[in-house]
Amino acid sequence: MTPPAPDTRKGGRRPGPIRTGVPFALLLPALLGLAFLLLPLVALLVRAPWHSLPEQLTSPEVWQALRLSLVCATSATALSLVIGVPLAWLLARTDFPGRGLVRALVTLPLVLPPVVGGVALLLALGRNGVVGQWLDAWFGITLPFTTTGVVLAETFVAMPFLVISVEGTLRAADPRYEEAATTLGASRFTAFRRVTLPLIAPGIAAGAVLAWARALGEFGATITFAGNFPGRTQTMPLAVYLALQSDPEAAIALSLVLLAVSIAVLAGLRDRWMTAS
């Protein structure tokens, strides 16, 4: 009776992993699921053109696409932070009529097929779009087929991830700290800046990484809204897709780069998610 007791306590208060008697009915589908998720990645490694990989990866086209992808994903994340964090705060900390509806609309791009997002962006911000025609007429700004267009397309698709993540963290955070700050004379913005932001920093960081990863992989909205031109709007996923038609080896090489970047992102988030269970 007494010997196993210290062992379970070592695992912490949360229920630890089951050590014995895994039911077969759960184990089989679980292993199938694991194999299903891992097999394509293994195939990518098995079929990788390892001998020609060095030249594939040192070609200027690959670096051009990778550099553009990194620049655009980072810009999209920065833009998401600037407008997404305040939006998350508004959704979590204020009460206004139709807040539930606004929240649902914010998450819409999460479920919307990205190509549809691209079409919507064209109709809104295109040269002939609802808003875009005035941008063109007044400022001479046209967004489709530009790198800015890529950033906007990626922001549209990625920002909801940040908003959701930050809003969740805000709801979990105790609002009494902010209230205490305001009763001590801080303005609400000061309280947000000096109390709330440091409090939810981990949530913002996680949301930003998630948004960045989503932006990096963005394909549908980008090719629809920003088109495809090497060095200007051809990001890695577009390069992979188009290379697959003409030069599958190059497509595999490009995919490996994206896979490596994804693993790096996961490694960066390791402390937050992988150990969360």
Binding site: L123, G126, N128, F145, A226, P230, L242
Partner: peptide, 21 residues
């Protein structure tokens, strides 16, 4: 030097239909 290399002929045409190109 085009503004975009489209993945098929219909998407090239659509860009003109939408007056984006």
């Amino acid at each position: 030097t085009p503004v975009s290399y489209e993945q098929d002929v219909k998407s090239a045409l659509t860009k003109v239909e939408l007056k984006e190109a």
